[in-house]
Computed example of a mutant assay.
Amino acid sequence: MKSVTITSIRPRSRSDATPAAPAAGGKFYTPYSFWFYLPTAVIYSVLFLVPTFASFYYSLTRWSLFESKFIGLDNFVLFFQEPALVKGFTNTLIFAVVTSGSKVVLGLLLAVLLTSRIVGRGYLRSVVFFPVLVSTIGVGLLFQVLMNPEQGLINGALGVIGIDGPGWLTDPKWALMSIALVDVWKGVGLATLIYIAGIVSIPREYMEAARVDGAGSWESFRRIVLPLSRPATVTVVILSLIGGLRSFELIWAMTRGGPGFTSDVISSVIYKQYQAGFYGLSTAGNVILFLVVTAIVLPLSWFLNRKEVNL
């Protein structure tokens, strides 16, 4: 057994303490004056807190650029009485669940593949991540052409093998799910990157010990990779869910919420209400979206982060 030499450690002085290091009395010491935090607090208040509270107020009014009239909860009552608005709310939840779930599963599988010893691993990582860098509007316009039911490349390729392709963006049964597939294609690269970072941070000793114990690839994945990549899973779930609930650009570029209201989400409904001049109603929609995202993401984040990994 190797001998270990223990050297004396000089106690750190107060001046050596790192930012937010614990000090005597349970207080936290920081070398920075609290005045350093003031610019950030001002910017955060101006860009986030003030607009948020203003939105809550204006959602209770019927307002224009020059005047406003307090009407209480009438905007919220009207929001849930309009079939198109309720449809947009339902579509938002469906879209968020489908896209976030698909990104988690595909991102994990691609990350396992791209951290294995395969030829061209670096190139394949670049290919998977490339759609993340492309403009969302550009992706929407591109797939609007590719999914054209008559002249689109996708239906043309299906026709070669004898399959009659559907109206991806014109059939009410397919429109929302078609956009969800495009959203997954564009966003799965980021999920894969997060999972790759989580997998490569797993100590190699765990994998070697599992191999010595006779564990196969599936056992190593199920008992080591999957539980130890839990922080990456939590990150992907939260980011994907927030993105799905707030999705707008891709849907607007591909279908503008159509045909009819079948692919409308809350964000596109809000935009249409703004265009029509119903500012109070659209502001109420913004508040509802904010509350929905908060009510879903905060409890989910707490639930996913409270469990510890046991090997």
Rank of each mutant, 00 (worst) to 15 (best):
M1P: 12
K2M: 12
S3N: 12
V4D: 07
P11Q: 09
R14E: 13
S15M: 06
D16G: 01
A17H: 02
P19Q: 14
P22T: 03
G25T: 10
G26I: 08
F34Y: 09
F34I: 13
L38W: 08
P39T: 04
V42Q: 00
I43R: 05
F48D: 02
L49D: 04
P51Y: 07
T52H: 00
A54R: 09
S59Y: 07
S64P: 08
L65N: 10
F66R: 13
E67L: 02
S68T: 09
G72K: 01
L73V: 10
D74A: 09
L78Q: 15
F80N: 12
P83L: 06
L85G: 00
T90R: 15
I94H: 01
A96I: 00
V97H: 01
V97N: 01
G101E: 01
K103Q: 15
V104C: 04
V104N: 00
V105M: 04
L106W: 02
L108G: 03
L114W: 08
R117D: 10
G120R: 04
R121H: 05
G122R: 12
L124D: 07
V128T: 14
V128D: 06
P131R: 04
L142S: 10
L142D: 05
F143Q: 03
Q144F: 14
Q144H: 13
V145F: 15
L146W: 10
L146Q: 07
M147S: 02
N148A: 15
Q151D: 08
L153Q: 06
I154K: 05
A157Y: 09
A157P: 00
G159Y: 05
G162P: 00
I163Q: 06
P166Q: 14
G167Q: 14
W168Q: 11
W168R: 09
W168N: 06
L169R: 10
T170M: 06
D171E: 15
A175T: 13
L176M: 13
A180N: 04
V184W: 08
K186I: 01
K186F: 01
L190W: 15
T192H: 08
T192W: 07
Y195E: 01
Y195S: 03
G198P: 04
I199C: 11
V200A: 07
M207P: 02
E208I: 10
A209N: 11
A210R: 13
A210V: 10
R211G: 03
S217K: 11
W218M: 13
E219Q: 14
R223P: 00
V225K: 09
L226P: 00
R230T: 08
R230D: 04
P231A: 07
A232D: 03
A232Y: 05
A232P: 05
V236N: 01
L241Y: 00
I242G: 12
G243W: 01
G244P: 00
R246G: 00
R246W: 00
L250N: 08
A253G: 12
M254D: 10
M254H: 04
T255L: 15
G260E: 13
G260F: 08
V265R: 01
V269R: 15
I270A: 14
Y271I: 10
Y271F: 15
Q275W: 10
A276N: 09
A276L: 13
F278Y: 14
G280R: 02
L281F: 09
S282N: 11
V287M: 03
L289S: 11
F290R: 06
A295S: 15
A295R: 00
I296M: 05
V297S: 02
L300G: 02
F303T: 08
L304K: 04
N305P: 02
R306W: 11
